[in-house]
Design a protein around this nucleic acid. Structure first.
Lengths: 418, 418
DNA sequence: ACTGCTTAGATCACGCCATGAATTAAGGCG
DNA sequence: CGCCTTAATTCATGGCGTGATCTAAGCAGT
């Protein structure tokens, strides 16, 4: 089991650039002093590296702070305008393209509903391309684009180019990355949407400051993003975290995946509605799942309460499984249905989890709701190119696909027909 | 989320020493040429680092191999006699202490049954101390001891000294590391026994060459060692991998942990026997669990077959959960009951897993039996100090507790009363 | 025995790195 | 205006990996 490779003296610099840049990005503004203290790097090295980062435009000075009569400390922060990021959310019914600055403030948004063509790949690629043009036009002139993150509702396999498999939208081994690469020279990052959302939640939401957490996402489907050691866990072939299809009941209810007793068949939005109707709850033919679930939550009838109680039990047991297997610092419940249910039955879910989990790991975790809401997939997607930027300490090293102008990221839309 | 720290130019060397040492340990013997090719290091660096490793006694030359008329390649391999390793298996009924050379060949063994005192901590510490004396005496003179690995049947929390919690043997926050440190100056490594066993299986058993796998261990209890990216996953507080207490049946059979429907309550050895007896299987009062289970496996009666069939279904569903959540390259079934059951119903377990797991991740994994057997906990424990040796490239850097004589590990038994 | 020839491995000069010590910058205060 | 305090930079030093160059060690043919 070899391969834990670091090699040349240059990687060292990259690593240190990365450490400093991350500190400033997530905990800034900070003085050079404070950076030295936090990272353990000598003041000399901090000075050198920071000078490089400022030279490169990644970091800017941001005021000073006094220091008991001595020379004031200069505060540093990551440059919001170093470059921009694109996040794409390929959803089940629409494609959303958003443009962000480096601090993930949204600059522009394009919402493109998928028509009758459904999830025809060419249509999706077309939508993404159109959305790109729209947001760039809408945002006007500005810094170049670092990269494009794309969140998709399926498993992303790297071969090494991203290939997407998705039962829900009927994609089988779609070479999305390659197809998108024909539209743009910008670096592309294709990732599972739930994973992207989980990363956003870890960086800016309920998971801030955690090294390990499980983001449990409940919508029509049920999934999870497992974060270990600060980064989402992908598994050998990218399909880790399929929590919705773990077995809550051996030989139980039939799930749409074909198996029996999957958790999704008990706590997914559709499953909750089905049980509600089976228990005599009024059926609202015209409503979509979301308003139908809202109606269940608002129904004061005992039958509705029983359905919710049962849902809490199954959800708690499912969460207990996550606690027992992953021993995370936090469990973060999200997804549109998760947030709706959570607002109502979180206490009972916690109680059920306490019942089904082992005492110690349960006591050492906390169960909370997502902060960012289910719309944040595009934000999560945009964190993907940002993550690489931070990892590399800002240097677009090697044979990157990123166009570079004056050492800064360029627009790279040469092949994007206007 | 900062902290991905590497710092000085010296760490670089350590990293490269580590890479080369690991290559030689796991894939040796190799020539310098081959090392250069595999690690990507320049021939010059390989020469330098190898010279250091030879100087330090970690690596030795081992013959030559011809090369089409040119100068022959000199083969290198890790030195079996650089130092010795101690592995301790604190089991439920006994303490086993074993002494190994660096290639994990056993040099001596001491088996110390736990008397009526049960798992009194002082008794266990005394046994370990006695075992140490025994194996050192039995093996006679030889290279120094690198460190002592201890596998315990419970959760190991690092605070940062290892503290052990174990329901099964009634340990609550036992500061085992600190207590053992009073007997010896040798570096100590306390770890969960299942985790240690899993690491052994990954290094020398069914997991050889894998980066990710789940070692599923079934005995009286049920647990798992999850290996991601080559190293066992511990979770935030060391209790990850509690597979036995994930829920197979919400509201199902009562488990000894207090919850309902735990997997362990269906596939643990005791659970299988209970179902067998409930189905009318003959009860053998005098026999231990192991022979009782053997009798079930040998019983040709339909009732016994049904029990096994049901066990296969639950086990398959449980394994499917592991596949869906972790997406590992391999599932490795071990533990004494796991191996017994596996020999008989592996096919049916595979079939059940196929039914309950998602198609893609199931197709990309394989389900196999452990190679090393359940006795290998001591081997696994011995891999713990070895792992650190390999990680550090052999240098006992910093304020190590390891006594060093002439740059080599010493015996460090000064405080071990003879 | 000797001469090329071929390949493995060692040595050397170079450029890059982080660091502690020394030096310079920048403010407050009497 | 000079002194003190603290922040930041600069400098000399020792490590490191690397490509180029050099030495070592075998073989084939004469």
């Amino acid at each position: 089991m070899p391969e834990g490779t670091k090699r040349t003296v240059r990687d060292l610099r990259r690593g240190n650039r990365s450490v400093l840049l991350r500190s400033l990005y997530f905990d800034g503004p900070l003085s050079r002093q404070e950076l030295s203290r936090r990272t353990g790097l000598s003041a000399a090295s901090v000075s050198n590296v920071v000078a490089e980062l400022i030279e490169g435009g990644l970091v800017v000075e941001a005021g000073t702070v006094e220091s008991d009569g001595g020379r004031p400390r200069v505060l540093l922060r990551s440059a919001r305008d170093y470059g921009r990021l694109v996040g794409v959310d390929v959803g089940e019914t629409r494609v959303i393209v958003e443009l962000f600055d480096l601090h993930l403030s949204r600059l522009a948004k394009a919402d493109l509903p998928l028509g009758d063509g459904g999830h025809d790949v060419q249509a999706v690629v077309g939508h993404i391309r159109a959305g790109l043009r729209t947001v760039i036009a809408e945002a006007g002139d500005g810094p170049g684009i670092i990269g494009i993150g794309v969140g998709v509702p399926g498993v992303v396999e790297r071969t090494p180019e991203a290939v997407v498999h998705s039962q829900t939208i009927g994609w089988d081994a779609v070479p999305l990355e390659q197809m998108l690469a024909e539209c743009t020279d910008l670096p592309l990052f294709v990732e599972n949407g739930a994973t992207a959302l989980g990363q956003a939640e870890m960086w800016f939401g309920a998971g801030r400051g955690c090294r390990s957490a499980v983001v449990a996402l409940i919508g029509s489907g049920v999934g999870a993003c497992v974060v270990t050691d600060g980064t989402p866990y992908r598994g050998a072939t990218g399909s880790a975290g399929e929590w919705g299809h773990t077995t809550a009941q051996v030989g139980g209810a039939r799930c749409r995946c074909g198996a029996r007793g999957c958790l999704e068949a008990y706590v997914g939005a559709g499953a909750v509605l089905r049980r509600y109707h089976a228990a005599g709850g009024a059926r609202a033919e015209d409503a979509d799942e979301e308003s139908a679930l809202a109606r269940v939550l608002a129904d004061p009838a005992p039958a509705a309460r029983d359905v919710l109680e049962e849902t809490a039990t199954y959800l708690g047991a499912g969460i207990a499984d996550l606690i027992n297997l992953f021993n995370p610092e936090k469990i973060i419940i999200g997804g549109w249905a998760g947030l709706m249910l959570g607002g109502r039955i979180l206490g009972r879910v916690r109680a059920a989890a306490a019942e089904y989990a082992l005492r110690r790991p349960f006591a050492q975790t906390s169960i909370e709701l997502c902060h960012l809401g289910p719309e944040a997939v595009a934000v999560g997607a945009a964190t993907l190119p940002l993550a690489r930027l931070l990892d590399r300490g800002g240097v677009p090293t090697g044979p990157s696909r990123a166009p570079v102008v004056d050492g800064r990221p360029g627009l790279g839309l040469s092949r994007l027909p206007g």
